[in-house]
C-alpha cells in the first residue's frame, strides 16, 4: 500500500514537472491569441530555438578555450552556477524574444488585416522555415545537453524522490508565472495588453500604441517559451531540431483546455495536462497517455466549450 502510494506521489512529481513546462509554453499561445485572435503555430519553434541558444550559451560559457578562467568559476562554486544559469536564461530569453518580435514584424504584421487563415498559414510557414534553418545550419543529429546543473535526488516519501532539477524547474516556473500575472494585472503595459485584448480598435482610439503592445507580447511569449525549451533540454538531456513539435501541440492543447486567451487558464491547463499524462502512462500504459490526455480535452470542451476558465464567447469578431 505504502509502495503504491509512493508510486502515485512519484507520478505526481513527474506530472507537475512536465506540466510546468507545458504551462510556460501554453502562456505564449494564449497571450498571442488573447491579443490577436491568432494561433501562433511558430511558437513551438521558439521553444526549440530557445533550447539551442541555451545549449550554446551554456557550452560556450563552460568552455575554457573561449572564456578562460571564467569556466572554472562558473562550474566551481554555487555562486558561479547561479550566475551561469542566470546568464544562460537571460541570453536565451532575449535572443528568442527578439526572434519572436522579428517574426511578428515580417510574417504577421503585413497580414494583420487579412482574413484569419492567412496569418495562420504564415505561422506554419515560419515554423517550417525555422525547423529547416536549424536542420541545415546547426545539425541534423540530436545534441546532448551537458549536465552542468548539480542533480541530486531527495527522498520525500517511501521510494518517491524529487530531484534538485525538478525543484529548480518548478520554482523558476512559479516565479515567472507570478511575475507575468502581476505584470499584466498591475502595470501600465499590462493594462494596455488587457485593453488591446478586449477591443483592439477601441484601445487604439484611446491612445494605446497597438503595435508596441503586440511587439511586446511577441517578446514575452517566445521568451517564456525559450525558458521551457532550456528546461526541456536539461530535463530530458537532448536538443533536436524538431523537439518543439510535440510539446508545442500539447501546450496548445493545454491552452485550449484552460480556455485560450486566459492566462491563468493556460497555467491550469498545463499542469492538468502534465499530471493526467503522467498518471495515464504510469497506471494504464505509456502508449495510452495521449489518448487519455485528449479524452480529457474532449470532455472539457463538450461540457465547457470555452475551456476550464475561459468565458464562452459566441463570436468575438
Amino acid at each position: 500500500m505504502q509502495a503504491q502510494l509512493a508510486t502515485i506521489v512519484q507520478q505526481l512529481i513527474n506530472g507537475i514537472t512536465l506540466g510546468s513546462m507545458y504551462a510556460l509554453v501554453a502562456l505564449g499561445y494564449t497571450l498571442v491569441y488573447g491579443i490577436l485572435l491568432m494561433i501562433n503555430f511558430a511558437h513551438s519553434e521558439m521553444f526549440m530555438v530557445g533550447a539551442y541558444v541555451g545549449l550554446f550559451t551554456l557550452t560556450g560559457l563552460t568552455n575554457p578555450h573561449l572564456v578562460g578562467g571564467l569556466a572554472a568559476f562558473f562550474k566551481g562554486s554555487g555562486f558561479g552556477l547561479v550566475i551561469l544559469f542566470a546568464l544562460v536564461f537571460v541570453v536565451a530569453m532575449i535572443a528568442v524574444g527578439c526572434l519572436g518580435m522579428l517574426v511578428e514584424r515580417f510574417a504577421y504584421r503585413p497580414l494583420r488585416n487579412a482574413p484569419r487563415l492567412a496569418p495562420l498559414i504564415s505561422a506554419i510557414g515560419v515554423s517550417i522555415f525555422l525547423q529547416n534553418a536549424v536542420l541545415l545550419w546547426v545539425n541534423t543529429m540530436a545534441l546532448p545537453f551537458p549536465q552542468v546543473f548539480p542533480v541530486k535526488e531527495i527522498t520525500i516519501y517511501g521510494s518517491a524522490q524529487v530531484s534538485t532539477l525538478q525543484i529548480f524547474i518548478l520554482v523558476t516556473v512559479i516565479i515567472l508565472l507570478t511575475a507575468l500575472d502581476t505584470f499584466v494585472a498591475r502595470t501600465r503595459m499590462g493594462k494596455a495588453m488587457r485593453a488591446t485584448s478586449q477591443d483592439r480598435e477601441a484601445a487604439g482610439l484611446m491612445g494605446i500604441d497597438i503595435n508596441r503592445v503586440i511587439t511586446f507580447t511577441f517578446f514575452i511569449g517566445p521568451a517564456l517559451g525559450a525558458v521551457a525549451g532550456i528546461f526541456n533540454g536539461m530535463y530530458y538531456g537532448v536538443v533536436l531540431w524538431n523537439m518543439g513539435f510535440i510539446p508545442g501541440i500539447k501546450s496548445f492543447t493545454a491552452a485550449v483546455l484552460g480556455g485560450i486567451g486566459n492566462l491563468r487558464g493556460a497555467i491550469l491547463g498545463g499542469f492538468l495536462l502534465g499530471i493526467v499524462e503522467s498518471l495515464a502512462s504510469g497506471f494504464l500504459s505509456t502508449g495510452y497517455k495521449d489518448v487519455v490526455a485528449f479524452i480529457v480535452l474532449i470532455l472539457v470542451l463538450i461540457f465547457r466549450p470555452g475551456g476550464l476558465l475561459g468565458e464562452s464567447v459566441v463570436e468575438k469578431v
Binding site: A3, T7, Q10, Q11, N14, G15, T17, L18, S159, N232, Y236, V238, M243, I246, E277, S278, L279, S281, G282, F283, S285, T286, G287, K289
Partner: peptide
C-alpha cells in the same frame, strides 16, 4: 510490457512504473 513512440523524449512516468 509497455509501448512508447519512437519520437518520445519523456520517459519519466514509465521509469517510475518500471522502478516499482
Amino acid at each position: 510490457r509497455d509501448k512508447t513512440s519512437d519520437k518520445d523524449t519523456d520517459f519519466k512516468a514509465l521509469v517510475t512504473k518500471i522502478k516499482a
